[in-house]
Design a binder for these strands. Sequence first.
DNA 1: CGACGGTTTTTGGTAGACCATAATACCCGA
DNA 2: TCGGGTATTATGGTCTACCAAAAACCGTCG
Lengths: 232, 232
Amino acid sequence: MISSGEGAIRVERPTKTLRELALEKVRDAIISGHFKPGERLVERDLCAQLGVSRTIVREVLRHLESEGLVTNPTNKGPMVALLDIGEARQIYEIRGALEGMAAKLCAEKGDPDLVAQLDAALASIRKAYALNDMRSVLEETTGFYEALFTRVERQIAWGVVKLMTVRINHLRSMTIKTEGRSVDGPKQMQLIVDAIRAGNGAAAERAAIDHVRAAAAIADAVLSAQVPAAES
Amino acid sequence: MISSGEGAIRVERPTKTLRELALEKVRDAIISGHFKPGERLVERDLCAQLGVSRTIVREVLRHLESEGLVTNPTNKGPMVALLDIGEARQIYEIRGALEGMAAKLCAEKGDPDLVAQLDAALASIRKAYALNDMRSVLEETTGFYEALFTRVERQIAWGVVKLMTVRINHLRSMTIKTEGRSVDGPKQMQLIVDAIRAGNGAAAERAAIDHVRAAAAIADAVLSAQVPAAES
DNA sequence: CGACGGTTTTTGGTAGACCATAATACCCGA
DNA sequence: TCGGGTATTATGGTCTACCAAAAACCGTCG
């Protein structure tokens, strides 16, 4: 991303600032469900729990707000964002559009290295499924798509997809556990890779969209079942 | 967005918090070029200029950072983000994908009201061009696309497009001033509307993509000319 | 049981302090 | 004059304390 002219001998001290640490902690806590949707996030409580000052906490909350993980009704204080079923559908749709675009570009690029990388990622996913290691499944799947985007220099689209993804993370972890997903999921991704290998852009796009669509359908079912009819 | 059960008699005091005000001010200052790309944004200076405390300024900077308008090199302090030509291309591409998607959905919906609204927006754009009122051109164009997205309930995609758009705002204001743009721009948008009116989803999608593509091409030319060869 | 009124909680926002580090200016000796 | 080391300054990162106002809570009284 940064055009550092002078090679890779940079010292790169990964000085994480306290704020970044706190941000990750809170984000993970939300994603992992430690803080449940709708739960209030009281600034001073967070200060105590994180062991940092309000300055930090406020900045973190603001950041998460702009990520869509936290909502902030004025004069009420921040809370973990609720995921609307309509929003979830929209997010899956956006992912479909962008992942389809990336897959198409990959196919048109015709880079054997890329195909190899995707194959490897897919193998890892299958292995993780076999071991029932859902955490790794998610991780490797993320890696698969990261390659899909970044190998054709689409960092920004990848950023958007990541942003969207954190908001539906708990849905993701439910969809991958669904009956048959351990077979269907990789199979659909295989179709993407095959189309890319064949250099068939249109097919790659379609396959990517289909894969997201399948995940969306499962998520939809999960959400509908989970909240059959929220009373007024 | 919010399901307020009890009708529209809400008092709705638009109590903007200071922070929100400050955020808009700074964002506008960046978009309008008051703060130029690469310029340092010194926290204490901003405090003085905005008349708010450092807490607020820091939160605002963090927010703009996650919008991509500000970068924050560690140990250096925030500065207005530089727009890379590659990033600009990526952004136009994403807009193409999403606006194409929205246009297609609009066509498939077949809502006469929507068509009327788009026609009206387009008329306003033409009028603004005739008056050489570029500010209004931008505004009305935004309205056009907002309708395109929100009329088919794609608020999230619209949010993404808005996010992308602020980052290329100065490019936008240059492209619309380009020779012939006052004719070509509306003409291309007319094609979108026509396709929607005809209920032709594929054509609407194509027209939307073409329109973005044309803008991207101009932006590309502008950027390439502007920075012929940035030295190492 | 319900309305009223006060107390506590919590947010929005401010001021100012402290430290660490990066950049800059400066100064002194060879 | 040049080189190098040191003092200074600018700035971000972080903390604490404080205030006002909105909300939430709670207990009392009609």
